[in-house]
Amino acid sequence: MGKGTEHPAHMRGVFLFLAHGTMQGMADFSALAEQIPWGLLISAGVFTVFWIGVFALLYHLIRFGIGVAPKIASLTLFIGALLLFMIAIAALQNVRLAIAADAFTPRFPLPDILAP
């Protein structure tokens, strides 16, 4: 079909069906996404990576370290990691996700300054 050619009538139904399916799919996905605790999942991921990393460092320091310095370093690392972990947990408990989400939600009608 050339430029500016009308689509046949039966194609209109196909487009509508696809558009409706896509919109429905997006709505379903949106509803599903709202139910997933993203904050919790991201925090759990960060904590898991952090503790695996800390374990690897402690393992290397204890196994291969020679002298007093690696022992002091491993103790400091462990105590610091534990304290920061507890602080992070406490900070995450205080997060008001609803307020945060609200801050990013666009308001309609748009303020005058943003109106075309």
């Binding site: 800390v54 320091l61 310095a69 990691a81 972990f85 900070a91």
Partner: peptide, 29 residues
């Protein structure tokens, strides 16, 4: 209203920073 979110993000950042610091110390030692 993002104060609590920023504090939580800073706490996670501090965790990563602590790991980075001790990674360097470990490589040195």
């Amino acid at each position: 209203g993002l104060r609590s979110v920023i504090i939580a993000a800073a706490a996670l950042y501090a965790l990563m920073w602590w790991y980075g610091l001790f990674y360097r110390i470990t490589m040195y030692l």
